[in-house]
């Protein structure tokens, strides 16, 4: 038997050695196509002006123009402020309500499954239906909210039409829509709490409040962090509820970042500036995620 050709064996061995790298190739390609390319394209847009003339798009490299637009955008300040108020208030209410419901329903001896199923319903309703539904309920003349106010002798309120209430109304809808999401995450965690540890604390002398404060909450902290982070990121990007209920108005009193982006892109046709704003939004969300990662690591180390 003759000696096999040395170079050929070398190739085979090299392929064997690098096999695991090659096997990543499909995933890398999909990632590049679906994630990396759009982001690169967005970055390119963010430093360009794009105009539509003579049936085609014309790109010109004008990074400073987009910056100028950003600085000159008088709506941006209120929009960022609104978004922060919306995220903080809505998510805080949702977290507290979701946790309370999870603890309450987790403590039931029967009917848990039914309660859980009922709680999922708001998540199943399409956002457009939620928007339409609440628009009717918020109606000044025949909406159910004003009817209830009427029963207790309070004059009808312009839920969606007043600058002071519009954002609050959007928050109410968001809370209704998203409390179940928090509930589901926390309910699973509550159900997974080690029963004997809670019993040990009760025997050790913990009152209900001490049990919650010193055992239950620390044990739920990973789930609380996950729920908070997911919800904060999603709330940061809220669009449909505002678009359907108030359209951001009156004025910019309920306009959130996503809706503002939409207006810049599709009403003002400022694609370059819109892309720049998008990049800032992405950076905002990313920093939330980094914060979250840091928080979860801190908690899992404990």
């Amino acid at each position: 038997m003759s000696r096999p050709g040395a170079p050929r064996r070398g190739i085979v061995e090299a392929l064997n050695r690098t096999f695991r790298h090659w096997s990543l190739l499909p995933a890398v390609l999909v990632f590049a196509l679906l994630t990396a390319y759009p982001i690169v394209n967005l970055l390119r847009m963010a430093v360009s002006t794009i105009e539509f003339r003579e049936g085609r798009e014309i790109w010109s490299f004008t990074p400073l123009r987009n910056w100028d637009l950003l600085l000159a955008d008088s709506a941006l300040g209120p929009v960022v402020f609104n978004t922060i108020v919306f995220v903080v208030v809505a998510v805080a209410i949702e977290m507290v309500a979701g946790l309370a419901l999870a603890l309450l329903i987790g403590g039931l001896t029967r009917g848990k499954a039914i309660m859980r199923t009922l709680m999922i319903i708001p998540i199943l309703v399409p956002p457009v239906a939620i928007g339409s539904m609440f628009k009717l309920m918020f109606n000044h003349d025949f909406g159910v909210f004003n009817q209830i106010l009427g029963y207790v002798g309070i004059a009808p309120v312009s839920w969606l039409g007043s600058t002071s209430l519009a954002l609050l109304s959007v928050i109410i809808v968001d809370v209704w829509h998203w409390v179940p999401f928090i509930f589901l995450i926390l309910f699973a965690a509550v159900e997974g709490l080690p029963k004997e540890v809670l019993e040990a604390a009760r025997v050790d002398g913990a009152t209900r409040w001490q049990l919650l404060r010193r055992v239950t909450l620390p044990l739920l902290m990973p789930a609380l962090t996950v729920a908070l982070v997911f919800r904060a990121i999603l709330a940061f990007k809220t669009f449909d509820e505002v678009y359907l209920l108030t359209g951001g108005g009156p004025g910019t009193s309920s306009e959130l970042l996503s809706l503002h982006l939409y207006k810049v892109f599709f009403e003002q046709n400022q694609l370059g500036y819109g892309a720049l704003l998008s990049v800032f939004t992405i950076v905002g969300v990313l920093s939330l995620m980094v914060l979250a990662r840091w928080l979860t690591q801190r908690w899992s180390l404990r």
């Binding site: 080690p194 004997e196 540890v197 019993e199 040990a200 604390a201 009760r202 025997v203 050790d204 002398g205 913990a206 009152t207 055992v215 620390p218 044990l219 902290m221 404990r302």
Partner: peptide, 20 residues
């Protein structure tokens, strides 16, 4: 009486240590 009012201590099979 609640468990905490009975002045007892219990050792569990799973030990039930506070993981945090």
């Amino acid at each position: 009486l609640e468990p905490r009012e009975r002045d007892i201590a219990m050792v569990f099979q799973s030990y039930a240590l506070y993981p945090h």
